[in-house]
Each structure stands twice: as structure tokens, then as C-alpha cells.
Amino acid sequence: MGKQTGIIKFTGKLGPLIGYYSGGEYLVRSVPERVRQSPSTRLAAQHFGKASALACTMRTALRPLLHIPPDNNIVNALNKKMHTILRADDLHRHKRFIPRHFQQLRGFTFTPRGSLMRSLPCDPVVSRHFDGSIHVHIPAMKAPGSHPSGTHVLVQAIALWTNGTSSSAASSEPMLLEASQPSEAFTLKIEAGGEGVCCVILEAIACQTFNGKPLLMRHQRHIACEVIAVLPPQRTRETFTAVYPEGDEALRKVGIVEYIPPKRE
């Protein structure tokens, strides 16, 4: 391993050399003459490649809908999480994505330095209706959390569907809340979209008005984006049994086929 000292530095393979960036420095090493792999290491590499490929489709589907800045650390974190979900399959030698294991994605954050509870101090409630639409109910709040100089908070819900090989996503209409005023309860609706497991993501970003228009602030502590619920593939209306919390008559209304209570610490 050596350091790159030239004016032009590179990453990746270049002839017999491999350049890479680590610890704030550009380093270089030689390409190994021979790589020995056992059947088990070869299979493990295939599993990681399969998990990374699905994570890539998920990021690609989300990219045009998210307002958060790109972060390379999230790429690695999502790849690792999907690899863990794939390895949870203990029935097949060639691992498969099992829908129930996607529950491990609940609580996954795309903004490690920002907290959803800080930006949106409430317990969202997620429900899915017979038509496939997803509703995220945001209860009333005294005041949304925001940056000290922020005037508003942008709130948006996103549904990410994945069937183990491909992914698609759709978002609700964004809601702009005044940071210094109490907020009434409201619901974000996402129209029915793809098929497969559905990850419901809630995004809350501090904004500042400029010439009467809200501009997104890039302060990392006040940008939050987190998976708040994971819904299994939707079954047909004839075979689905509605599930409701006991005693909660307010949610026993026609149309709701699935209910996820708010996450309480």
C-alpha cells in the first residue's frame, strides 16, 4: 500500500494498480495475481451482490422524491441492511428475500445526524385502505421542531414498494407547517402504486422563507428521513382480514385494512 503523490489522483483499477480513497488520503496497491475463492466465499459474494442490487433499485426509486442531500454513507448502510435481511432466510441455500424479514427496515434512517422526533415531535399512524392507498396520520402538535432560524417544516410521506428484484416509489403532497405555531392534525395520502413489501418513509425538513418562498435548509441536525412502517404485500379483499387495536373505535371505519400504531419509546 502506498500514497498517491502526483497531481492527478485516481480511484479504481488502472493497469496493474488499484487506487482508492481512505482516511482522507489517496492510496494505491497492486492488483493481486490470483484470487482464490472457496464455494462458500463465492456464494457469500453472490448474496452480497444480490442485496446490493436490490438496494440500488430502492435508492434509484427514491432519488427523485427525497429532498435530503445525497450521502455515500447511506449507500453502505442500506447495502448492509439489505444483506442482513437476505441472510435472515434460513430455508434456502441460495438466499431469498422473505417479506416478513423486511420488518428489520423499520426505524432505518436516511439522515443519521437528524432525528425525526426532533423535527416532528409526534407519533405518526400508518394505515392502508382497500384501494391500496396509504394514509399517514400526523396528530396535532404544539409546534413542530425546527432550526432556530427556520420558519417552516416541510413534511412528506413516501411509499417504497419492492418485490425482491425491482422497486418503485410514490409520494404524498408535501405539507408546509409553521414552526412557531401549533399544528392541527392532518393526513398525508399516497396513492396506490407498486407491488410487494411497502416501506413507508416520513420526511421532515426545516425551511426558511426568502422573498415569501420557503427554501430548504441544509443543516444536518434538522433534516430527518426515516422508515416509520413496513407493510407486507397486500392481499386480495376477499382473503384479507382487517386488524384493529382493541377498544379503538375511531379506527373501525370502512376502508382501512391495515393499521400500524404509533411507535412509542
Rank of each mutant, 00 (worst) to 15 (best):
81 K>R: 15
194 G>S: 05
99 P>A: 03
135 H>V: 11
124 P>Q: 10
145 G>I: 06
127 S>W: 05
148 P>V: 03
153 V>C: 12
158 I>V: 01
90 D>T: 10
109 T>L: 09
150 G>I: 01
96 R>V: 09
188 L>P: 03
194 G>A: 08
179 A>V: 03
193 G>R: 00
194 G>M: 08
148 P>F: 12
195 E>T: 14
189 K>Q: 09
139 P>Q: 07
186 F>G: 03
120 L>D: 11
145 G>M: 10
94 H>Y: 07
103 Q>C: 13
144 P>W: 09
85 I>N: 03
128 R>W: 10
113 R>E: 11
95 K>Q: 13
142 K>Y: 02
131 D>Y: 07
118 R>N: 05
148 P>G: 10
170 A>I: 01
94 H>I: 13
90 D>P: 02
87 R>P: 06
127 S>Y: 07
111 T>N: 06
177 L>R: 08
92 H>M: 09
98 I>G: 07
148 P>N: 07
167 S>T: 02
193 G>I: 04
136 V>N: 00
112 P>R: 13
98 I>Q: 11
103 Q>W: 09
87 R>C: 11
87 R>Q: 15
167 S>W: 12
99 P>Y: 08
141 M>Q: 15
103 Q>R: 13
186 F>W: 10
136 V>S: 02
193 G>Y: 04
156 Q>F: 07
87 R>V: 11
149 S>H: 14
154 L>G: 14
105 L>Y: 11
169 A>C: 05
130 F>V: 15
94 H>L: 12
151 T>Y: 10
125 V>A: 01
174 P>G: 01
107 G>M: 08
159 A>S: 15
183 S>C: 15
138 I>G: 04
173 E>G: 09
86 L>Q: 01
162 T>W: 07
171 S>T: 00
136 V>C: 06
156 Q>W: 04
106 R>A: 12
155 V>K: 03
165 T>R: 12
178 E>L: 13
148 P>T: 04
184 E>N: 07
93 R>G: 13
192 A>M: 03
112 P>T: 11
195 E>H: 14
179 A>D: 06
191 E>W: 03
159 A>T: 06
150 G>L: 07
89 D>E: 02
152 H>P: 04
123 D>G: 11
108 F>G: 02
152 H>Y: 09
167 S>I: 02
143 A>W: 01
83 H>D: 14
116 L>S: 02
129 H>V: 08
153 V>I: 14
124 P>K: 07
125 V>R: 00
136 V>H: 04
180 S>P: 05
173 E>C: 06
152 H>A: 01
163 N>E: 12
122 C>K: 05
170 A>D: 14
145 G>E: 11
105 L>G: 02
194 G>V: 06
95 K>N: 09
158 I>F: 04
105 L>T: 03
130 F>W: 07
84 T>N: 14
132 G>A: 09
143 A>R: 13
